[in-house]
Design a protein around this nucleic acid. Structure first.
Lengths: 206, 206
DNA sequence: TGCCACTAGGACCGTACGGTCCTAGAATGC
DNA sequence: GCATTCTAGGACCGTACGGTCCTAGTGGCA
């Protein structure tokens, strides 16, 4: 049953949850947002609020995979350039909501990591898939990188910085926070590249 | 009335909130944690749960200022070295709770940034004070840094990365995530330093 | 012994939540 | 026209929350 109604519910829920958090989003809110007839209508499609949350998380990740992570796998573009484009895409995605939404994963992680093991595991899996995409890219780019580049550590650094930046952006309601951090992040990645650009030169290269 | 009881309540609340979040921590939980006799006892010290939350936030910041930010102002130590020590202190603070607690500010920010304007403003102020401490330090270190180092941007980058790293650490329940990111962060800061160490050399210098 | 001040402790209230179940009425088949 | 199926919509339930208020018991004092 991947009906329209189901999608409608998931969209409404995703929007509400990313704005107000999972706990603060009630089933009634979702019903109102998706214009359902009543509670029984909702529970026809989802067996519990928890299950709804899991599916919203899945859907958010799929969307992120399509619109963000896909860039990391573009075969016709140089891997490191792809990484830069991906970071730009994260900024653009964030700019869409005026920086008010935050990362759907980071928000849930902060809200539920300790309160709800089911979510914690699923969110961890999301970040792991994200990290593995970056690791593959770094592996692909390995001829251009210094030999001692630790792909696991660098991929974690990139993700943590982006998540932290999105959080700060949401808090300050100012997308330029993320933009600035994205620039620095790209520069940091540049310092791992073997073309011999020293750090203080890299700084000038956008 | 900065009584012991009050402190006891604040400690218990801080512990609960940093573990389970503000919304998921009930007043009854706090009462149980602080071993109060009943609700009226609690409401004798705090006029509402919201007010309790504000004071917990204040207290957490004061503790962080004493145990963390204080390092940034140590007058006898070279500023950049201080920055490294500060990052170490953040790691150590996080290790104390086994990486399970997360940042008291980042957690609240993610949980309440959009849901509760009062908290948002206060949390933003906390980060602003933190950022200003780093900016002062960078200003102090300015003779050692390249001329084009943007203190505002770099301070934001440092904070965002640390917050993101703490979030990831909590999610994965693995302190080594933060440790690795801290190493990279120090290296990134190193690339702003004028001593001519190129990035790929800096990598070897712990 | 009788009185008072104080507070521990809990009963209670209104609201909101997740979730279940029932009914009124429209659509369908004969 | 009548019976049957289906579902929109809401009434309802138990629980948990934030917050208020009252009672019963204790200790101090004359």
């Amino acid at each position: 049953m991947t009906s329209d109604r189901r999608m409608q519910i998931l969209d409404a829920a995703a929007s509400l949850i990313s704005e107000r958090g999972f706990t603060s989003t009630s089933v009634d809110d979702v019903i109102k947002g998706a214009k359902l007839s009543g509670k029984s209508h909702f529970y026809h499609y989802f067996k519990s609020k928890e299950e709804l949350g899991y599916e919203v998380l899945n859907r958010q990740f799929e969307r992120f995979a399509e619109r963000g992570l896909a860039i990391l796998r573009e075969p016709m573009i140089d891997p490191l350039e792809r990484l830069g484009l991906f970071i730009d895409a994260v900024v653009a995605l964030q700019a869409e909501s005026g920086g008010r939404r935050g990362s759907p994963f980071g928000n849930l992680a902060a809200e539920l990591a300790d309160a709800h093991e089911g979510f914690r595991i699923r969110i961890e899996a999301v970040f792991e898939r994200w990290a593995s995409q970056i690791r593959s890219l770094l592996w692909e780019a390995r001829p251009q990188l210094y030999d001692d580049v630790d792909a696991v550590r660098l991929s974690r650094f990139i993700i943590a910085t982006l998540e932290g930046a999105v959080l700060m952006t949401r808090l300050k309601r100012d997308i330029s926070v993320l933009e600035g951090i994205a620039v620095d992040l790209k520069r940091f990645i540049g310092t791992h590249v073997r073309d011999g650009i020293a750090a203080h030169h890299a700084r000038d290269v956008e």
